[in-house]
């Protein structure tokens, strides 16, 4: 079947199905099960109101349960078992974890992930703060914001292509078409380098891609927070004689500390899951492996579901503190 046609039919089925479900289920409750008239009017209304929220929620809860909650549990189970011939699996305890810990590629991935975890959120937040501060005070600020924010719309793979062009390497003597090598030679460097194969340093060249993408996000949020600071506190500080740097670091930044934390953690979650950039640019070679790519290797190249799931569980564990912090914040917000 033509995919476009199939897509159209799916949209119609999906939307039509949802509309039909919501309409009919409400109709069922209101007219057949608990009609709001007759001798039991009051009781029926009360019961209908008890049932109705669940009618509205049911499809979403079903999808969330199947597509997010169940997989978490199933992955946990898979990480503790091993595939056996046929379609079954066998419980093996922590064997997968033990094997994983013994692999140097896994340790490399953990080391790199931690490196990413420190560098990217810090750099993106710092650049975002700088960009927010600079663009908030100039006349063409909204244009500047747009341009810095733009990489947000670009796919990780697209960004990988863009940065591969920047890191491009041609043997000495040829014209260097990669901007980084051209710059190095222009500044008096002796010879061009193949940046993506330089151990350890290549990690930072990969991180630059994500920093480039995430800075816009940090800038947008932080700029809104900066503008939300009561103007009076800034004016009071100016009258007290604070210079622009004191104003920024001692009056403005402390007041948006909460927002900075939010930006930091949000980028942290993105960093933990980072996959496409490494997959597209180095595929984990030359010491650039990261957890998500390691997991993909295990699951879909080696077909080792046990170790792959174990690494997914590690990923989940790394995200958990942020999850808890977010939930706690949201609950405080609701109260």
């Amino acid at each position: 079947m033509n995919a476009a046609l199939q897509g159209l039919i799916t949209i119609l089925l999906g939307v039509g199905g949802c509309v039909a479900y919501y309409t009919l289920s409400n109709l069922l409750v209101d007219t057949l099960l608990f009609p709001a008239r007759g001798p039991h009017q009051a009781r029926n209304i009360r019961r209908a109101n008890l049932v109705r929220p669940w009618l509205f929620l049911a499809p979403a809860l079903f999808v969330l349960a199947v597509y997010l909650a169940y997989p978490v549990i199933e992955t946990l189970r898979l990480s503790l078992s091993e595939r056996v011939a046929g379609d079954g699996s066998r419980f093996v305890g922590f064997a997968n974890y033990v094997q994983m810990l013994s692999e140097s590629k896994f340790r490399e991935a953990m080391r790199n992930n931690l490196l990413w975890l420190v560098v990217v959120p810090a750099a993106a937040t710092a650049f975002g703060l700088l960009a927010a501060r600079l663009t908030d005070r100039i006349r063409w600020g909204s244009l500047a914001k747009s341009l810095i924010f733009m990489p947000m719309a670009i796919s990780f793979v697209g960004a990988a292509v863009i940065f591969k062009l920047i890191y491009d390497f041609r043997p000495p003597g040829q014209a260097q078409i990669g901007a980084l090598n051209a710059l190095v030679l222009f500044l008096g460097g002796s010879e061009p380098r193949a940046w993506l194969t330089m151990p350890l340093w290549n990690n930072f060249f990969l991180m630059a891609v994500l920093v480039w993408i995430q800075t816009g996000f940090a800038m947008v949020i932080l700029s809104a927070a900066l503008r939300g600071i009561p103007e009076e506190t800034i004016e009071a500080a100016i009258i007290d004689g604070a210079g622009p740097f004191q104003l920024f670091f001692r009056i403005q930044v402390p007041q948006i500390r909460g927002t900075i934390a939010v930006v930091w953690t949000t980028i942290t979650v993105v960093v933990l899951k980072i996959f496409d950039i490494v997959f597209a640019m180095t595929n984990g070679q030359w010491g650039t492996q990261v957890l998500a790519n390691y997991m993909y290797d295990k699951l879909f190249r080696a077909g080792d579901w046990g170790v792959g799931s174990a690494s997914a569980v590690v990923l989940m564990l790394l995200v958990t503190p942020i999850l808890v912090w977010n939930v706690a914040n949201a609950r405080r917000e609701m109260r």
């Binding site: 008890l50 929220p53 969330l64 169940y70 899951k273 996959f275 609701m334």
Partner: peptide, 30 residues
Amino acid sequence: MAFPGRALLVAAIVGLLVVPLQLALIPLLK
């Protein structure tokens, strides 16, 4: 809408926001 467990559900949604989709790959493919 007011119903028991609403706050808990909202908290659960906030939690699910950050669950890495990597966890879902194999179970869902199966």
